[in-house]
């Protein structure tokens, strides 16, 4: 696939990459950008995602889910946008608390992609990419999807229903 074709393919899938994942929808994640080997996703600040009510800082788990989703999306885009992926491992360093009230944006990039694996580096920031709240390194593997589950999910999405 040429880069232009791949980009068009990714853009056609873009609405599904976040909206097709019920957990991403539950966290309110929004896809900001996608290109072969990179993805940027935003997590809006929300009161029900706060970890410590005293500090009003988003829970580390929200940052974990955001970085996982952005990294997986970058890996998917880096592997040609065809395969379902499973996360092998994800390592996160929490540099500082995110500012209460601010959205957090994850920017993920593949470092190396093979037929089966993608290695991804990502940062999460709340406005300034040079002052990240967290960084992540992860590895993903192409996985077989259950054909029955895939057909059922596609049908549900086509009918505007929940794919689960």
């Amino acid at each position: 696939m040429t880069d232009d074709k791949l980009q068009a393919h990714l853009e056609s899938l873009a609405p599904l990459l976040v909206d097709g994942s019920p957990h991403a929808v539950a966290l309110g994640l929004k896809l900001e950008a996608i290109a072969p080997g990179s993805a940027s996703i935003r997590a809006p600040y929300r009161d029900d995602l706060v970890g410590d009510p005293e500090t009003r800082v988003l829970h580390g788990g929200v940052i974990t889910a955001l970085l996982d989703h952005a990294s997986g999306t970058a890996a998917f885009a880096g592997m040609g946008g065809r395969e379902a992926l499973a996360t092998l491992d994800l390592r996160i360093d929490y540099m500082r608390p995110a500012e209460p009230g601010r959205d957090v944006i994850a920017e993920a990039k593949t470092i190396r992609v093979t037929k089966q694996f993608a290695f991804v580096s990502a940062i999460a920031h709340d406005g300034d990419p040079d002052d990240p709240v967290a960084t992540a390194h992860s590895a993903f593997m192409a996985t077989r999807v259950s054909k029955a589950a895939a057909d059922k999910a596609r049908k549900a999405i086509e009918n505007g229903q929940s794919p689960v």
């Binding site: 580390g60 974990t64 889910a65 379902a84 259950s146 589950a149 895939a150 999910a153």
Partner: peptide, 15 residues
């Protein structure tokens, strides 16, 4: 996370 596999979201498990 991914209804096609189907599997729970890795981020939710991490959290």
């Amino acid at each position: 996370g991914n209804p096609l596999i189907p599997a729970l979201h890795g981020g939710a498990i991490g959290a």
